[in-house]
Design a protein around this nucleic acid. Sequence first.
DNA 1: ATACTTGCAAAACATTTGCAGCCGC
DNA 2: GCGGCTGCAAATGTTTTGCAAGTAT
Lengths: 145, 145
Amino acid sequence: MLHHSEKNKSFEMACRQKNLRVTPQRIEIYKELSKAKDHPTAETLHKRLLKRMPTLSLDTVYRTLGTLAEHGLIHKVDTTESQAHFEADLSKHHHVICARCGRIVDFDWPVVDESELPEELSNWGHVERRSLILHGICRDCQSTH
Amino acid sequence: MLHHSEKNKSFEMACRQKNLRVTPQRIEIYKELSKAKDHPTAETLHKRLLKRMPTLSLDTVYRTLGTLAEHGLIHKVDTTESQAHFEADLSKHHHVICARCGRIVDFDWPVVDESELPEELSNWGHVERRSLILHGICRDCQSTH
DNA sequence: ATACTTGCAAAACATTTGCAGCCGC
DNA sequence: GCGGCTGCAAATGTTTTGCAAGTAT
């Protein structure tokens, strides 16, 4: 696990490597996403950032998240929702999503990461990443009926 | 594997069971989705159906797909795209998605369906369904460079 | 007869784009 | 200085909603 300062440094290096300019907006958006544990949407992230950067525009957040996701510096979460959710954690992990409250929780499952893919995929192409989504009802939502 | 007529009969029964009225629109939308192998969006499905049902409105397609998905009669595919993709196939299976062309292909992987879920999820709540998404580049898109 | 569903139109929500000025390199 | 990035505004794309008329049960 990297410290925050190291993480941000490596983010700047990753940007340079991809020929993306290191702007204050990108740094702050990435930092805010990194410390978030709730897979926020562009709008949520924008609201949080406005406190620190009152002039940051929502479309810059959209554009930045899009750019970073395209370059693999962050991930868009696979969802059935209309709003896109993002995360900065690039380590192998998966998601459980509650159908009631929509909360997304991370979990690890090495079986999925490490098992050999089924034969029928052998000539599909190149598989880059595996992302498992569990759908269900979380404990809180069950008890609230 | 059910025949089409059986599938449609069981769809009508499923609707009745859920107190959803069996309307021509629902039947046709479900039939069109059932025979599609490409996980169409609401708009794509609407275009296909217009040939047969010239007065069918797009918002009915949206509403119907939403209703059927809510009741578990069809599935919304977990995606990073902005447009929702649907499928009528409820059997356990998973999806590979090409980052270039966006094509979604089904595959089976019993390891994912049958392995016991990791300990850390034991008190998350009730897990209903497992959906694995593989991200990559399909063979066609690799060769077209 | 009643309540659910549809089609129309409009609204709401989510995301993208054009452009002029700004800023990282 | 150049080219990419931002903020503003406007456009586009996607989905949802209100309502009156129609239809399944």
